[in-house]
């Protein structure tokens, strides 16, 4: 759905640009290709790694793993699982809902959802390539730590 919107937008924008200035539009497409080509080595590598991680860490594996752990240690374990995995929202949220039904705590689910979305261990090589080691370490590290604050807030408020 959103992909179609992106295509619609891109086709419309390129059409408008083409009518206005062909030379410039060609230049834009050359830039598009160069930007894509720069990203491709790490990007394809990440797609392969994500394929492997998703295969090994299935929703069943994750729920079995999280089911046995509770309390603060459980939260830390959950945070690590969330940081490493990169699963799309339409898989993650139903999984989180199931875990809640099976007795997982709000805080644990909060930390899982937060780290899942904000911390990307698997995508770190690409982030390093774009923004360097320091930015990658700081952004992911802070996101990891603050996921606990968000989880605590959720535990108190929800």
């Amino acid at each position: 759905m959103f992909t179609y919107m992106m295509y619609g937008l891109a086709v419309f924008a390129l059409g408008a640009s083409w009518v206005k200035d062909r030379q410039r539009s060609r230049q834009a497409l050359r830039k598009s290709w160069r930007a894509l080509n720069n990203m491709l080595p790490e990007f394809t590598a990440i797609l392969v790694l994500v394929g492997l991680v998703v295969t090994l860490l299935t929703p069943e594996t994750i729920s079995r793993f999280l089911g046995d752990n509770s309390g603060f240690l459980g939260m830390i374990a959950t945070a690590f699982v969330g940081a490493i995995t990169l699963i799309p929202g339409f898989v993650a949220f139903p999984l989180a809902a199931t875990l809640l039904d099976h007795g997982a705590g709000i805080m644990q689910i909060g930390v899982f959802v937060s780290t899942l979305m904000m911390v990307g261990v698997v995508t770190a090589p690409l982030e390093i390539k774009y923004f360097g080691k320091k930015e990658t370490l700081m952004r992911n590290g802070l996101s990891f730590l603050l996921a606990f604050a968000v989880a605590y807030g959720l535990g108190v408020l929800v």
């Binding site: 992909t3 992106m6 834009a28 830039k31 598009s32 930007a35 394929g51 492997l52």
Partner: peptide, 28 residues
């Protein structure tokens, strides 16, 4: 494993083209 990896690549092929076309246009 093969299925997951292949679907990642297919998803990329579907999502990536408009993103980069828009990026190039934004840039110029």
């Amino acid at each position: 494993l093969w299925q997951n990896t292949a679907s990642n690549f297919l998803e990329m092929l579907a999502v990536i083209p408009p993103i980069f076309v828009l990026l190039g246009l934004l840039d110029v």
